[in-house]
């Protein structure tokens, strides 16, 4: 009897944990949506900010986030894929694999603000790119590299060995097999990983604080060396700077909702894609 009560109590606690977790998820989405919807309209999405950030839209921030994300993926995807190909297809000696794997794991654990410090020293100052799209993209790209590598690795490992053998047995070279057989077969999985990374990159703030982001630009960036507005940084700036806190909070709600929708759309897409792939295999 006592056992039964303990069990019921225990199971209730577990149920309570999951419900609390879901409650927070619901609360975040609910409050951001309800308040955000009040300010979001066509003008909000397509106009530049006016009157010291109290009116107008957030278009430059949306555009800036797009550039930064695109740049980061452009940098990290080829690099990450090449790394994954080396690890999976060229199977180097095990101590080499261990060194590389340890670096990847540790790089994944570096706090995002430390990436910002690195970007500031190396890209902004040392290479002289200044506070710019280029510096920000590179910093974000390095931050997301471990994620891209492990997604690509997982996708490559899921390609059956028999495809490789069949291709090699037909007289394809190692490189031809990799390029024409293995990578195309792994592509859906790699894409899923990339999409998830897009969500991560688009939402990151700390790495771009000192490397790319600015509170206000009059128009749109005109080169990779321009500083940019970005959605996540804009939310931060609206809440900590400026002189009209109430007006600014409203706009920050709008920004948060736009960012949230963007990120959730992207991750839902990735989750659905992945489930479909698993169903197929």
């Amino acid at each position: 009897m006592k056992n039964k009560i303990t069990q019921n109590l225990g199971f209730f606690l577990l149920f309570f944990s999951i419900i609390t977790t879901l409650f927070f998820l619901g609360a975040i989405i609910y409050f951001i949506s309800v308040n955000g919807l009040k300010v979001i309209n066509w003008e909000f999405l397509t106009q530049v900010p006016r009157k010291g950030m109290t009116e107008g839209g957030i278009a430059p921030a949306i555009v800036g986030t797009f550039y930064l994300t695109f740049g980061a993926i452009l940098f990290s995807l080829p690099l990450g894929l090449a790394c994954a190909i080396y690890l999976c297809e060229y199977s180097p000696k095990s101590y080499v694999v261990n060194i590389i794997r340890m670096s990847i794991n540790n790089l994944a654990g570096v706090p995002s603000v430390v990436f910002g410090l690195f970007g500031l020293t190396v890209f902004v100052k040392f290479f002289g790119f200044g506070v710019s799209i280029l510096s920000g993209s590179l910093t974000l790209g390095i931050m997301v590299l471990p994620q891209i590598i492990s997604a690509s690795q997982e996708a490559l490992l899921a390609v059956p060995q028999s495809y490789r053998e069949a291709s090699l047995a037909l007289g394809a070279t190692h490189w031809q097999t990799t390029k024409k057989m293995v990578v195309p077969a792994a592509l859906p999985g790699i894409l899923t990983g990339v999409i998830l990374s897009i969500g991560r990159v688009a939402g990151e703030t700390a790495p771009i604080l000192f490397t790319a982001a600015t509170y206000y630009t009059r128009g749109y960036p005109d080169s990779v060396f321009s500083e940019v507005m970005a959605l996540p940084y804009h939310i931060y700036a609206l809440m900590t700077e400026g002189t009209h806190p109430e007006k600014q909070t409203e706009i920050a709600y709008g920004c948060s909702l736009v960012l949230l929708i963007l990120v959730l759309l992207v991750s839902t897409l990735a989750i659905v894609l992945r489930q479909r792939q698993r169903g197929e295999l």
Partner: peptide, 30 residues
């Protein structure tokens, strides 16, 4: 070159996840 001269058919049918045509043309292209 050895593998081009010595073909192999495996225990379990292992066509590539491509079209029928591409399966055959693959070896020619490589």
């Amino acid at each position: 070159k050895i593998r081009r001269l010595v073909g192999m058919v495996f225990q379990k049918p292992n066509p590539f996840p491509k079209t029928i045509y591409e399966n055959v043309s693959y070896g020619l292209e490589v």
